[in-house]
């Protein structure tokens, strides 16, 4: 059972029923305000040990602010936060000693070699040089950068820098790894390589908390996630449960020529799908059977220039919940 310090304080009626293991992160009504701007507006969530937990949302939804609070480099302005059972306000340094952090910007030392970056970071955690060197070599193998150990950081590709930053975040063998937008700006091949490494970490029992605005990343990596929009959490669950709850099994995506695009209330669309979204570039029809819906459209004389039937994704969940797409 987690101990909420000062549990008798006014308004603190929250006593989570934890049966198996204490949550690694526990937030209740957590807020972050910068002057009159509210970055995070009263969110509650918990992360269990061994879990890969995600914050999915567009830029500016409050994901990074939340990550910085969990990372104990940004004091909350409201609500409760416990990380590894401790209070960031009091035990920030002790918590940070047990966290791994992969920030949105790599923040590597460009004057040093790949290996030196890891060794020095190990020293920041008070590891001996001997231990630091051993872990650096082990981690360079893990992120497949051993052949670049003696090279300077600057000429590395974006994907390599990201992998080095992940290795750096693991140098203290953290109980929890925080990843802020781990694959933003990477090309598809680099992303897949990175996902593979993160997946292996997960298999090895490292708990992950990550933010992303890529729904495929969230689906690939997260056991459970919260969808954030405008500083608040709008949904929570496993990717599959969220899709089941907020979208249909399939989506029929159709594109029309600009002058032939039917409006949302066009009678020819009536009853074809459970729900219809008209986006600037395409029309989405949510249905259990996309093929059948396509046939119906054709029977009613609609002639889209492109037709695609796919399974529903978190993108659709987000669209449903917020009326907007994740990446604009």
């Amino acid at each position: 059972m987690i101990s909420l310090a000062g549990g008798s304080r006014p308004g603190d009626g929250y006593h989570p029923q934890v049966t198996t293991a204490d949550p690694l992160v526990l937030a209740r009504d957590l807020s972050k305000r910068f002057g009159s701007f509210t970055a995070v507006d009263g969110i509650s969530f918990s992360v269990a040990p061994g879990e890969a937990f995600g914050f999915l949302g567009p830029n500016g939804a409050g994901k990074s602010s939340t990550m910085r609070m969990i990372g104990c480099v940004s004091p909350p302005t409201g609500g409760e936060l416990r990380v590894l059972g401790m209070d960031p306000a009091r035990d920030g340094a002790r918590i940070r000693a047990l966290l791994g952090v992969v920030p949105q910007q790599d923040s590597l030392d460009m004057e040093l070699t790949v290996r030196e970056n890891l060794i020095l970071y190990g020293r920041y955690f008070d590891l001996s040089y001997r231990e630091s060197r051993a872990r650096a070599d082990e981690l360079l193998d893990f992120v497949q950068l051993a052949d670049r150990a003696g090279d300077e950081v600057e000429p590395l590709s974006g994907g390599m820098k990201r992998r080095l930053t992940i290795a750096r975040g693991l140098v203290n063998r953290p109980r929890l790894l925080l990843l802020d937008e781990p694959t933003t700006g990477l090309d598809p091949q680099a992303r897949h390589l990175l996902w593979d490494r993160l997946y292996r970490l997960k298999q090895d029992g490292v708990s992950l908390v990550l933010t992303t605005h890529y729904m495929d990343e969230a689906e690939q990596l997260c056991d459970r996630l919260v969808v954030m929009d405008k500083a608040r959490i709008v949904a929570e669950g496993s990717p599959r449960a969220l899709i089941a709850e907020h979208a249909t099994r399939e989506v029929l995506e159709v594109r029309f020529a600009p002058d032939a695009r039917p409006a949302e209330d066009d009678p020819r669309l009536a009853g074809v799908a459970e729900r219809i979204e008209v986006l600037p570039d395409r029309t989405l029809l949510y249905t259990q059977d996309g093929e059948a819906a396509a046939v119906t459209l054709h029977d009613r004389g609609l002639r889209p220039v492109a037709t695609l039937v796919r399974r529903s994704s978190l993108e659709d969940v987000f669209l449903r919940l917020t009326g907007r797409t994740l990446v604009d």
Partner: peptide, 14 residues
């Protein structure tokens, strides 16, 4: 520029 100070304060350093 490199933001190495941000990396430092993510550890127990102050």
């Amino acid at each position: 520029w490199d933001r190495t100070y941000q990396a430092a304060v993510a550890t127990p350093l102050l």
